[in-house]
Simulated scan of single mutants.
Amino acid sequence: MTNVGVVTGGGRGMGLECARRLPEIVDVLLLVDLDEATATEAARELSAASPGTRAEPFVADITDTDALARLADRVSGLGTLRAVAHAAGISPTMADWRRIFTVDLIGTALLAEALRPLATTGTATVCFASMAPLLGGPASDPAVQKVLDAPLEKDFLDRIREAVGPAVEDTGIAYSVAKSGVHRFVRHEAVRLGPQGARICSVSPGVIDTPQGRQEAANNPTLGKLTGATPLAREGRAEEVAAATAFLLSDQASFVNGIDLLVDGGVCAAIHTGAGSLR
């Protein structure tokens, strides 16, 4: 039996770090990325570093249903789906509010829908969320939550705009609400996948030192305050998030399902206990 792994955003950053961990549990690894050159180079690196695992680039937009259908066909043709690390996503400085919801939440649901028929005993998925919604915001409103629970409805963007109000056009708020939607989606998906013996969880990174994280920090002073409020007194590293992801995908986490693993150095604990402040 050939075990197949999928990493979205696998050409760089936290996606690539996750991919570096997966040769321990898969025989073939598909690196899904929009950038063909980046994904191809990452596949070469991984194949050379882990000769027992074949890494392949797979160029796709996770919001493109045709591309996701091709991905599912490729996985099915290679073997059994064993692990999915869904690290692809965009942050507040990268797009407008509609695109943020489309990539970060709708794309997550579309990927799950495409791969769900391939899930079997031992299949594990980890979706990247964020600590952002855990710090508060409009996603706590039951009316917003109701809309978030149906991200594939055709009028989803109009409905979430109505539920949140004009504030949703602030890309920071849109990002937080979209990632709250990922938290909620994972819980619902865990119930759907359980009867097949498959699992799904999410990870919520805190302030992580990556190129994307540095771009956000340059445009959002609050991120610097979050680092200052972190009990470990530093930013996280991509490999630390990848290690948490690898654990959730491993057989060691075989009874861990439908939860979010917060990887934030304790900053949410500090904020919620009053030991840390964003002022």
Rank of each mutant, 00 (worst) to 15 (best):
N3E: 14
T8Q: 08
A19W: 11
I25M: 15
V26T: 06
V28H: 14
D33Q: 06
A37S: 14
A37D: 14
A39S: 14
A42V: 07
E45V: 12
L46K: 03
A49Y: 09
R54G: 04
E56N: 00
R74P: 05
G77F: 13
G79Q: 12
A83G: 01
A83W: 05
V84C: 07
G89K: 04
A95N: 10
W97F: 09
R98F: 06
R98H: 13
F101H: 13
T102V: 01
T102C: 04
L110T: 06
R116V: 02
R116D: 15
L118W: 10
C127N: 14
F128W: 02
A129F: 05
L134H: 11
G136K: 12
S140P: 00
P142Q: 02
P142C: 08
L148W: 10
D149W: 00
A150L: 02
F156G: 08
L157Y: 05
L157V: 00
D158W: 03
R159T: 00
R159A: 15
I160P: 10
I160V: 12
G165V: 01
P166K: 08
A167H: 06
V168A: 01
I173V: 15
Y175E: 02
Y175F: 14
S176E: 04
G181W: 11
R184G: 09
V186R: 11
R187H: 13
V191Y: 09
G194E: 13
G197P: 11
C201W: 04
S204T: 02
S204Q: 11
S204E: 11
P205S: 09
V207F: 07
Q212N: 07
R214G: 00
R214C: 00
E216Q: 14
A217F: 07
T222V: 15
L226R: 13
P231E: 01
L232I: 14
E235H: 03
E239V: 12
F247V: 05
L249C: 09
L261S: 02
L261N: 02
L262I: 15
L262S: 04
G265N: 07
G266F: 05
V267H: 07
C268H: 06
G274V: 10
